[in-house]
């Protein structure tokens, strides 16, 4: 019994969403990751602080004016 086969693991629509177009055999989201190529590295101490040795992966969360989740111009980047 291959439970991964869409026929068996038909995604359950959350309660109250039964009219939601959840067709049988709907593939769930598939992520992709572009292939990383190691070129440059931060120094050990910098890497420890940044949380990665790869400059291209340094993405600190900057505080933005998005209180209440309402997107305004200051949120878009």
């Amino acid at each position: 019994m291959d439970y991964r086969h869409p026929r068996y693991c038909w995604p359950r629509a959350p309660y109250g969403y039964y009219d939601y177009p959840m067709k049988k055999g709907l593939e769930l989201a598939e992520a992709y990751i572009p292939y990383q190529q190691y070129t440059t590295s931060l120094s050990p101490m910098e890497a420890l602080r940044a949380g990665t040795m790869f400059p291209e992966l340094v993405r600190p969360y900057e505080k933005k004016g998005c209180e209440g989740g309402k997107a305004d111009e200051s949120c878009s980047r």
């Binding site: 990383q36 190691y38 101490m45 890497a47 420890l48």
Partner: peptide, 23 residues
Amino acid sequence: DQIRAIEFMTIDLNLYLDTHPND
């Protein structure tokens, strides 16, 4: 602190090598 920084490099390189064993 030096040990932490150097150990961090071994960790990150290890993770990278898991997906790039020929690098």
